[in-house]
Nucleic acid binder design. Sequence first.
DNA 1: ATGCCTGAAGGGTTCAGA
Length: 287
Amino acid sequence: MRIATWNVNSIKQRLPRLLPWLDERKPDVVCLQETKLADDKLAELLGSELEHRGYAVAAHGEAAWNGVAILSRVGLDDVVAGLPGGPGFPHQEARAVAATCAGVRVLSVYVPNGREPGSEHYAYKLAWLASLRELLARAPEATVVCGDVNIAPTDQDVFDPDAYVGQTHVTPPERAALGALVEAGFHDVVRDRWPHERVFTYWDYRAGMFHQDLGMRIDLVLASTAVADRVRAAWVDRQARKGKGPSDHAPVIVDLDEAPDGDIGPVVPPPSAPAAPRGAKKLPQAP
DNA sequence: ATGCCTGAAGGGTTCAGA
């Protein structure tokens, strides 16, 4: 199963890139962020385009800002829009949607930006992450959180850490809030696969930042152990950031092995197989 | 010039993004 996540920065503007990308990469499940479109308008805009490609849609959007969605061609059940009981600003924004796809609980999230450390927007960001943490504590064993977390997990995930001192996305409280998700048993599968590589998912539109590869890694796939153990490939689709009319974010693509079949009993590794650290079991796979 | 692009709303400019 191929799962992808992409902050498209307006699904309306990105349609000429999104549809060919679906046809080329053929993801089974796609988590979208910053759709910037109300649900009825989204259905009107691309409902038939998705339907004829076999995708069901769980959209949770609003006009102008935010907006998330899950596209799936492997089932889309138990859809929940928003973070139940989560914080608002002051009203709840369209920043999360969840669905079960082929036995995996999938969340598409767009974490608040935070704007300025110490601001009310920043407090909202931290509260939102705490609410997500609470939700994940009750999540099914096979769960994956995909999306724009608006946090660079470490200085390795920023082109120049000095350029971001004192700014959002890198502050200790934000990183601690993200770390709490990891402590809850969720694995950053791209970093696990590429532990020492320069990997970014976002590049500012301005000043040729993408051309110079001056970016940040803020779009993550966080997989529960049951899902992380199935990861066969995890990479950033930089091609989608190139050319005419791109989003400022690139998609992240993760391929999973089939789920273990409970009917054939527990899967036991051969006695000769040493226990390898996660991410070291296979060679990295480039697109 | 921490607003060098881009998008949206609403109006002929402003706000937001990270």
